[in-house]
Simulated scan of single mutants.
Amino acid sequence: MDILVVDDKKSVQSMLSELLCAEGHSVETANNGLDGLGKAQKGNHELFVIDHLMPLMNGIQLIKNFKKNPDLADKKVIFITTQGSKSLKSLPEYSLFDKVIEKPFDKQKFLSVLSELTETAFECESIQLNA
């Protein structure tokens, strides 16, 4: 699967890239929402992993732009946040996310969420991410 990881933290990009590549996926990274939008429009990604709070364009703004683009509108989105999923549920944009993961999360939790979206089972030892 071709996946775009959009996060302004290099440690999160590296961890997710290593994890997803080890599972056989192709991964591209972007440093912020604006960078992510450009790469998404040029690429053929099947899944997006998008951070909530980023410079230049936050994750919610990025997803709103995706939904306006017919080529991106139906792609799956895993939204990652430090703000807590309960606070996101009150946002009108909440329905735009396929899954929400709160930081910090471990690799097994991420693979479990990915599995739910892709209906593919993954196994990985649990390692805490403190990003």
Rank of each mutant, 00 (worst) to 15 (best):
residue 45 H to M: 14
residue 7 D to G: 00
residue 28 E to P: 13
residue 66 F to Y: 07
residue 104 P to W: 04
residue 121 A to N: 13
residue 5 V to N: 04
residue 10 K to H: 14
residue 7 D to M: 00
residue 110 F to A: 02
residue 60 I to L: 06
residue 111 L to K: 07
residue 21 C to T: 11
residue 58 N to D: 03
residue 48 F to H: 05
residue 24 G to Q: 05
residue 56 L to F: 07
residue 82 T to N: 06
residue 13 Q to K: 07
residue 120 T to S: 06
residue 17 S to M: 15
residue 128 Q to W: 10
residue 97 F to L: 14
residue 25 H to D: 14
residue 37 L to T: 02
residue 12 V to C: 04
residue 80 I to S: 01
residue 4 L to H: 08
residue 37 L to N: 02
residue 90 S to E: 13
residue 111 L to S: 06
residue 50 I to G: 02
residue 12 V to P: 00
residue 76 K to P: 09
residue 108 Q to R: 12
residue 69 N to K: 14
residue 8 D to I: 01
residue 52 H to M: 08
residue 25 H to C: 04
residue 66 F to G: 03
residue 17 S to D: 08
residue 120 T to K: 09
residue 12 V to F: 03
residue 31 N to T: 12
residue 34 L to S: 10
residue 17 S to K: 10
residue 115 S to Q: 09
residue 2 D to K: 14
residue 103 K to T: 04
residue 13 Q to A: 08
residue 15 M to Y: 06
residue 24 G to P: 13
residue 41 Q to T: 14
residue 59 G to P: 02
residue 108 Q to A: 14
residue 130 N to P: 09
residue 94 Y to R: 07
residue 34 L to W: 05
residue 79 F to I: 15
residue 36 G to L: 01
residue 15 M to A: 13
residue 103 K to R: 09
residue 90 S to Y: 12
residue 58 N to I: 02
residue 8 D to Y: 02
residue 65 N to M: 15
residue 37 L to D: 02
residue 33 G to T: 00
residue 95 S to G: 12
residue 70 P to Q: 10
residue 116 E to A: 08
residue 27 V to R: 03
residue 107 K to L: 08
residue 57 M to G: 01
residue 55 P to D: 01
residue 6 V to Q: 00
residue 89 K to N: 13
residue 31 N to D: 05
residue 78 I to N: 02
residue 96 L to E: 15
residue 46 E to R: 12
residue 8 D to L: 02
residue 115 S to F: 10
residue 119 E to Q: 12
residue 78 I to H: 03
residue 60 I to M: 05
residue 113 V to N: 04
residue 60 I to R: 04
residue 9 K to M: 07
residue 28 E to Y: 15
residue 119 E to D: 15
residue 55 P to N: 03
residue 67 K to E: 04
residue 89 K to I: 12
residue 24 G to N: 14
residue 25 H to W: 08
residue 125 E to Y: 15
residue 100 V to D: 05
residue 117 L to D: 03
residue 56 L to G: 05
residue 103 K to A: 03
residue 42 K to C: 08
residue 45 H to P: 10
residue 97 F to D: 03
residue 127 I to S: 11
residue 60 I to H: 05
residue 85 S to T: 13
residue 46 E to F: 05
residue 82 T to I: 11
residue 106 D to C: 07
residue 90 S to W: 10
residue 87 S to Y: 10
residue 55 P to Q: 03
residue 6 V to P: 01
residue 125 E to A: 10
residue 5 V to F: 05
residue 105 F to N: 03
residue 90 S to R: 07
residue 35 D to Y: 01
residue 35 D to S: 02
residue 63 I to T: 07
residue 17 S to Y: 15
residue 2 D to Y: 15
residue 21 C to D: 04
residue 102 E to N: 08
residue 61 Q to M: 07
residue 105 F to D: 03
residue 101 I to A: 06
residue 31 N to R: 11
residue 114 L to F: 15
residue 106 D to S: 11
residue 30 A to V: 00
residue 15 M to C: 09
residue 17 S to G: 09
residue 118 T to N: 13
residue 89 K to P: 07
residue 49 V to R: 01
residue 6 V to G: 01
residue 59 G to D: 01
residue 86 K to P: 11
residue 83 Q to R: 11
residue 80 I to K: 01
residue 18 E to A: 09
residue 70 P to S: 15
residue 102 E to T: 05
residue 50 I to K: 01
residue 11 S to F: 04
residue 111 L to W: 06
residue 1 M to W: 08
residue 60 I to T: 12
residue 7 D to A: 00
residue 54 M to G: 01
residue 89 K to E: 12
residue 106 D to N: 08
residue 6 V to K: 00
residue 64 K to D: 14
residue 12 V to W: 02
residue 131 A to F: 12
residue 97 F to W: 07
residue 35 D to L: 00
